[in-house]
């Protein structure tokens, strides 16, 4: 059913638009304006401003990944045990918000989180402490969790729902209580999904510049913002590429981790 020629268009496309563009980043990242080899673009990460942005990005993305995991795992457990989980309905519920524009979806949180916004007003009315997180790192974490939570839920749900119920029954039969069953049987079996979810949340959180622009009020710079400005404000493509290479290091590490643990079951999207 297969002729070798079937693979040509895709090989050609992948070479032209996946491999070669990446090579350009390497080229620009490792040369200066005259085209001479240099490591100074990589070293640019060490400047006070850039390293601060990177550390902040790492901190916020790790935090939002952790929050996503904490929120998503119980949810995946609940869904896999319920009837609504069985149909495609659940994927439907989590993919549906994507049909509302990503920028608008995130911007809506400005209305909700703003001083005198919906949540703040609710707090004020009910006498709770005022709710002012807009334009703070907390708002950015909020946005990351909101935007990327589905990417944590779906892989974990996918793996848990495929666990043979008899494996769980066997654990109970052998005397494990519900907590031990969860901790010693279900969790280890769901690890591929967890790892896949972690990369799928961590990488976009680490590299985002949109969420920080929208919810950080333009004052908080993440590493993504720094790189974006190097390119769109025309500062220096070379430095921008160098910083991207540094960023890719983190991405490659997390990708390597995920391919090590994940045998493809965790991929949902």
């Amino acid at each position: 059913m297969y002729k070798r020629s079937v693979s040509y268009p895709c090989i050609l496309w992948s070479a032209a638009f996946i491999i070669i563009p990446l090579l350009f980043i390497f080229y620009y990242g490792l040369t200066d304006r005259t085209g001479a080899f240099t490591l100074s673009n990589l070293a640019a990460i060490a400047t006070a401003e850039n390293s601060k942005a990177l550390i902040l990005s790492l901190g916020l993305s790790l935090l939002s990944t952790a929050i996503c995991l904490l929120l998503a795992y119980p949810l995946a457990l609940i869904l896999s045990g319920s009837k609504i989980g069985r149909s495609g309905f659940i994927i439907f519920l989590f993919v549906l918000p994507m049909w509302m524009n990503f920028l608008l979806r995130t911007l809506a949180w400005v209305v909700l989180l703003d001083t005198n916004g919906v949540l703040d007003t609710l707090c004020k009315l009910s006498g709770l402490p005022r709710f002012k997180i807009i334009n703070t790192p907390a708002a950015i974490v909020f946005g990351m969790v909101y935007d990327f939570l589905p990417f944590m839920i779906l892989p974990i749900y996918n793996v848990i729902s495929k666990i043979d119920i008899n494996v769980v029954n066997a654990a109970r039969d052998l005397g494990a209580n519900s907590f031990q069953t969860l901790y010693k049987v279900i969790f280890p079996l769901s690890l591929p999904g967890v790892i896949s979810g972690i990369t799928m949340v961590f990488v976009p959180s680490l590299t985002t510049f949109v969420i920080s622009t929208l919810l950080g009020g333009g004052k908080i710079l993440l590493i993504g913002n720094v790189i974006e400005q190097e390119f769109m404000k025309g500062t220096s493509w070379h430095v921008g590429s160098g910083l991207s290479l540094v960023l890719m290091l983190f991405i490659i590490v997390s990708m390597a981790l995920s391919t090590k643990y994940d045998n493809g079951e965790g991929n949902v999207l």
């Binding site: 990446l22 350009f24 980043i25 976009p204 590299t207 985002t208 510049f209 991207s244 960023l247």
Partner: peptide, 8 residues
């Protein structure tokens, strides 16, 4: 990362 793909 989308940003890397984009600038590439």
């Amino acid at each position: 990362a989308e940003i890397v793909t984009g600038i590439a």
